[in-house]
Design a protein around this nucleic acid. Structure first.
Length: 467
RNA sequence: GCUCCCUUCGUCUAGUGGCCCAGGACACCGCCCUCUCAAGGCGGGAACACGAGUUCGAACCUCGUAGGGAGCGCCA
């Protein structure tokens, strides 16, 4: 049987980091086992579902490059199917119509809460064989078994047993003609031949009742794997305040999609001491059964470190499109400056994100906007600054082929000419190039400026000193 | 309240009865390298929630306690 997993978000917001990890694990499990990955949009909550959210989820999946083999299916397009299955269940005596008002149910609940018992529907209509009648409160409830227990072997949590006495007759079909979540998922997962349900562990509580529905429908239950949740840095549930932001926010913040994936795959799963995983390795090594049972905190520091690992080790050419996105976002005139790939090489040891890299690249895509007074005072006003700059000016102007090596030689020669070490030339030059005393290695810093701009900036600096 | 789940360095984790007075990674600190800042190299501090039990032997098995989380909807 072909392994089929599915990611089934409800479109009530963007794709957040937790959803992204669930999607990743579903995707990996299907890829690892040579199966298929299905995307399903659970949009039966008409109040909260929006088209914009559907689009946001699709965008997030595309950015992460988690392609699906089927779908997206939309539950709202399957309404007839749910109705039909629910009515079949009533006809088979496995479900029944009930007519309580929401107020009556609410009263029942609060009474039970007050009596310190778990609130459950009392099954008033269960055996009444109430005829079908028009009523604004008419719902269909599932006849949950009253005895025995449901046992399932969760692939991450292990064996879980649930007494049927804890369960009540849940509504499977609402009075407004929409199916409820617990019913629609089961119908969908059966129809879509899902073999492995991988989802957040906030669903373990739903699993026993869903298994009962599978049984009533005469279908075999799939394998279940419930993923622990991702917590914020403070150990609290992820909220908008600290990280439950859209995965697209991570793009905006300068992270590479693969770094995010790598971070996510290691959050709750591991393969020995390995930290870096290529897509291929993830697919080959991942097994949902190896996922950890407990919740993990989200740590941007480690994500940043991983991101820099990719910045440092990936082929710069492959990073260019991502970097261009940030250069554009920063509003630079890219054509006026150095080749982005060269900038990446110069900055990849110094930036953890593409955004940071773009910020540091500003001096090569436009004029120096700000002069650091301390830098000027220390390195431009020093005794050796003027001779150093003059010496390097002549040699830079004379470079025949403008590349990092030749720039380096020119600077070395200038230092030798005035009988000083590299530092005495590099620091004033650095300030002349950037207005600051911090930048990549001096040869790259000068090279990236381009020959005419580099020479002009040395002249500008000399003028600034008053020479 | 009830039911279910969870608990190894600050964080992510390795560990499935002896290889563990617990290993790796991020972060932190120190040293080295050095044209600045990084990156890199080397080194350091830092954890088995607690208590019983089983066993020759327990981070690993059992029970209890404490702490944390989730669910208990005509939301998903």
């Amino acid at each position: 049987m072909t392994v089929r997993t599915r990611f089934a978000p409800s479109p009530t917001g963007y794709l957040h980091i937790g959803g992204a990890r669930t999607a990743l694990y579903c995707w990996l499990e299907s890829r690892h086992r040579g199966g298929e990955f299905i995307l399903r949009i659970e949009d039966t909550d008409r109040e909260r579902s929006t088209d914009a959210a559907v689009q946001a989820i699709l965008d997030g999946m595309r950015w992460l490059d988690l392609g699906h083999d089927e779908g997206p299916y939309y539950q709202t397009l399957r309404m007839e199917r749910y109705r039909q299955v629910a009515e079949d269940l009533v006809r088979a005596g496995k479900a029944y119509y009930a007519y309580e008002t929401k107020e009556e149910l609410e009263a029942m609940r609060s009474q039970q809460m007050a009596a310190n018992v778990k609130p459950r529907y009392n099954g008033a209509y269960r055996d009444r064989a109430e005829p079908l009648r028009d009523d604004p409160n008419r719902v269909i409830r599932f006849k949950n078994p009253t005895a025995g227990s449901v046992v399932f072997n969760d692939k991450v949590k292990g064996r879980i047993e649930w007494s049927n006495e804890e369960l009540d007759d849940l509504v499977i079909f609402r009075s407004d003609g929409f199916p409820t979540y617990n019913f629609a998922v089961v119908v969908d997962d059966i129809d879509m031949k899902i073999t492995d349900v991988i989802r957040g562990d906030d669903h373990v509580n739903n699993t026993p009742r869903q298994i009962n529905i599978y049984n009533a429908l005469g279908a075999a239950a799939p394998a279940f794997a419930h993923l622990p949740m991702i917590l914020g840095p403070d150990g609290q549930k992820l909220s908008k305040r600290h990280g439950a932001v859209s995965v697209m926010q991570y793009r905006d913040d300068g992270f590479l999609p693969h770094a995010v994936l790598n971070y996510l795959v290691r959050l709750g799963w591991s393969h020995g001491d390995q930290e870096i995983f290529s897509r291929r390795e993830m697919i080959d090594l991942f097994d949902v059964a190896d996922v950890n049972v407990s919740a993990a905190r989200f740590d941007v520091e480690k994500l940043s470190w991983l991101n820099q690992q990719y910045l440092k080790n990936d082929d710069p050419a492959e990073l260019v499109p991502h970097f261009l996105w940030h250069l554009d976002a920063a509003g630079y005139d890219v054509a006026s400056g150095p080749a982005p790939a060269d900038v990446i090489v110069a900055l990849r040891d110094r930036a953890r994100t593409l955004k940071e890299m773009a910020e540091k690249a500003a001096v090569w895509y436009g004029p120096i906007r700000e002069w650091d007074d301390a830098a000027v005072a220390k390195h431009l006003k020093s005794a050796t600054a003027v001779p150093a700059l003059k010496a390097v000016h002549a040699r830079l102007a004379a470079v025949a082929e403008w590349n990092v090596e030749n720039v380096h030689k020119a600077i070395e020669a200038a230092a030798a000419a005035i009988g000083e070490g590299m530092g005495k030339v590099a620091q004033p030059l650095r300030v002349a190039m950037t207005g600051t005393q911090v930048s990549p290695s001096i040869d790259h810093t000068v090279f990236l400026a381009g020959q005419s701009r580099a020479v002009a900036r040395v002249e500008e600096a000399l003028k600034r000193i008053g020479e």
